[in-house]
Each structure stands twice: as C-alpha cells, then as structure tokens.
Simulated assay, not measured.
Amino acid sequence: MFKYFLFLTLLVVVLANEDDLHAEVKSAYNSIDGNGNYKYGHDISNGVEIKAEGNVNGVHGEYYLLGENGEKIKVTYTADSTGFHPVVGAK
C-alpha cells in the first residue's frame, strides 16, 4: 500500500507549479483499524484534493487536480495486484 501512496505523492509533486510551492493543507484526516483497513484524505489550498481507502488487498480513491484553464479534473482509481487503474474525467 505504501507504494500506491508514494505514487500519488510523486504525481502531485511532478504536476506542481510555482504557485503550488506556497500551498497549504486546509484539512486532512486519516484512520486505520485493527484489521488494516484505512482511509485518508487531504484538501490543499491550491485546489488539489485526495481521498483514498483500502487495505492489503487494494485501494480505491479519487483525486482532483486543476487543469490549465483552472477547471478541476477528477481522477478516480483502483490499485491492486493487477496495477493502477485510473479513470480521468472533468468534475
């Protein structure tokens, strides 16, 4: 699971621009239960939102990035033993 989190973190870093250097976390949550199920989410001041939940068998979630015209672009995904499976669409 850590590799999926690392992938998403690197994706956000690669897509960052100069304005994003001063972005701040507006809200964040995370939880994990005794069975290994987890949920987390972040809402960033630059418009990026990340939400995910999963366990050792896989993860599903969504994130929003800003397009060149300022429109939010939604990406939903699943990630499991077969790979990372994103679906891209406008919000």
Results as ranks from 00 to 15, higher is better:
30 N>K: 11
35 N>M: 06
8 L>Q: 09
45 S>G: 05
7 F>D: 05
49 E>Y: 03
85 H>L: 08
61 G>V: 03
76 T>H: 08
52 A>Q: 03
62 E>L: 10
53 E>V: 00
58 G>V: 02
31 S>N: 12
6 L>A: 15
43 D>A: 12
72 K>M: 07
10 L>Y: 05
26 K>N: 09
41 G>P: 01
83 G>K: 13
73 I>E: 04
73 I>K: 06
67 G>W: 03
2 F>E: 11
59 V>P: 01
39 K>A: 13
28 A>K: 14
77 Y>D: 01
58 G>E: 03
61 G>E: 05
91 K>P: 03
80 D>V: 03
72 K>Q: 11
75 V>R: 04
63 Y>E: 02
76 T>L: 02
17 N>D: 14
55 N>H: 07
52 A>C: 07
90 A>S: 14
52 A>H: 04
31 S>F: 14
77 Y>L: 12
25 V>R: 15
30 N>A: 14
82 T>V: 05
7 F>L: 15
49 E>A: 12
52 A>N: 02
28 A>D: 05
34 G>A: 09
20 D>Q: 13
39 K>H: 12
75 V>L: 05
41 G>D: 13
55 N>G: 01
64 Y>D: 05
57 N>K: 11
69 N>Y: 11
80 D>H: 07
7 F>I: 02
57 N>T: 09
53 E>D: 05
13 V>T: 03
82 T>P: 01
81 S>F: 15
6 L>R: 11
33 D>F: 13
76 T>G: 05
49 E>M: 12
24 E>R: 15
88 V>K: 12
2 F>R: 08
59 V>A: 02
86 P>Y: 10
59 V>I: 12
50 I>L: 14
60 H>M: 07
44 I>G: 03
50 I>Y: 03
37 N>C: 10
49 E>H: 10
43 D>H: 10
75 V>D: 03
8 L>V: 01
38 Y>S: 04
30 N>S: 15
26 K>D: 13
23 A>I: 03
33 D>G: 05
55 N>M: 01
68 E>Q: 11
64 Y>G: 00
70 G>S: 10
81 S>E: 15
29 Y>L: 05
10 L>H: 02
29 Y>V: 01
34 G>V: 10
88 V>N: 13
73 I>H: 08
22 H>L: 03
30 N>M: 10
35 N>I: 00
21 L>W: 09
47 G>C: 10
54 G>Q: 00
31 S>H: 15
13 V>K: 14
53 E>T: 00
78 T>V: 12
48 V>F: 14
7 F>H: 14
75 V>W: 04
35 N>L: 05
70 G>D: 11
88 V>A: 09
83 G>T: 11
55 N>A: 06
62 E>R: 13
39 K>V: 09
15 L>M: 04
59 V>N: 00
36 G>F: 11
90 A>L: 12
52 A>I: 01
54 G>E: 01
47 G>W: 04
60 H>R: 13
31 S>A: 15
28 A>C: 02
5 F>D: 13
16 A>C: 06
46 N>R: 08
55 N>P: 00
37 N>K: 15
5 F>K: 07
12 V>K: 07
78 T>C: 08
36 G>N: 06
63 Y>R: 00
43 D>P: 00
68 E>R: 12
83 G>C: 10
23 A>E: 08
84 F>C: 01
42 H>E: 07
1 M>Q: 10
13 V>C: 09
85 H>I: 06
71 E>I: 04
20 D>C: 15
2 F>N: 04
15 L>G: 00
88 V>Q: 06
21 L>V: 09
68 E>G: 07
70 G>W: 12
51 K>M: 04
